[in-house]
């Protein structure tokens, strides 16, 4: 199973990213769970400077922007 983490301190863009990630999981049918990480100390472990960020299986894939549903689905496959 794959793990998607969405890093962000709860801003509007982060919420959109979570929604996109969940939609991408549903559409692609890949077995993956979406976790939202809001704790700043936890977020900083990934050494990012801009949020929202998307982490797939502990690898930072996107930072500082909202990825589209298609983009995340492509990553999952």
């Amino acid at each position: 199973m794959k793990t998607i983490k969405v890093l962000g301190t709860g801003c509007a863009k982060c919420k959109t990213t979570i929604a996109h990630a969940e939609e991408a999981v549903k559409q692609s049918g890949v077995d993956a769970q979406v976790i939202k990480v809001e704790d700043i100390q936890e977020i900083m472990k990934y050494n990012i400077l801009t949020t929202p960020a998307l982490v797939l299986d502990e690898v930072v894939m996107i930072k500082g922007r909202v990825p589209s549903v298609e983009e995340i689905a492509a990553m999952l496959r």
């Binding site: 962000g8 301190t9 709860g10 801003c11 509007a12 863009k13 982060c14 700043i40 977020i43 900083m44 050494n47 990012i48 400077l49 801009t50 949020t51 929202p52 500082g64």
Partner: peptide, 11 residues
């Protein structure tokens, strides 16, 4: 983006 100011600061 104001939501990035804290991660930026720490980074």
């Amino acid at each position: 983006c104001s939501c990035s100011s804290v991660p930026l600061f720490i980074g």
